[in-house]
Amino acid sequence: MALREAVPSAVPGTSARQAVAELRNLGCALGSDLFVVIESLTLFAGDVLVLDAPSGTGKSTVLGLMAGIIPAADLQGRVQRMFGRDLADPSRPFAPPTAAELGFVLQTSTLIPYLSLAENIDLPAAIARCTVAADWRAQLIRQLGIETLLRRMPHQVSVGQRQRAAIARAMLARPRLLLMDEPVSALDPSNVRRVETLILDLARQAGAAVVLASHQVDRSAFAAERRAAHRVVHHQGVAYSLFHDAEGRA
């Protein structure tokens, strides 16, 4: 199996110091019959990468592996370099990414239910003690159309408004990497295109690399963006769901 073969620790023509993320053979088991693996993936600031694969193939798991919240299996040739730090180095304690490094937008369960929208938006930056430019915060909130909802609690706004607040929260500290797990799937169809465009626009303003999991990309604002190749290989009763960067940057 190719996964077990040694792979180069750096990709020719790229600089590890400049890359936001550089991953090789990073994977984990999902149950006994599915193994999700990022074969190769390299991201630079401003890159947008779409994980376009059917449901159940491990797109969310890929995001979790990148964020470091899902423990990676010890695969041969594993490279897990994020924000210039080697997370695969067992000699260094795992340091979770800060709000200035990573923003995460979930599909649902996006907000802390007992905090107002404003408190939710500000929380990660407060935890990371990041200084947020007031004009960037105001611009973010205005463009996402939630400026009149900031004092409301999550249960007092719609699903779409909650999702927009979650996007604001993820972007507030201008993270270097934005991971988005089907961020518009719960939205009203009439708002989907507008929010998708907004995400791209705001991510570019923030200078963030974006990895977005979606299974309906073709008619979305992300249709023109770079996509990760995905294939499933069956071997000895186990399905290997393999993702890799399709455009040669990996």
């Binding site: 964020a67 996006t110 239910p113 935890i127």
Partner: peptide, 18 residues
């Protein structure tokens, strides 16, 4: 009851001690 909220707090960087 707040399991997901605690999980989210961990995701957005709140330390274990906190």
């Amino acid at each position: 009851r707040r399991r997901l909220a605690f999980s989210l707090l961990r995701l957005i960087g709140l330390s274990g001690r906190a």
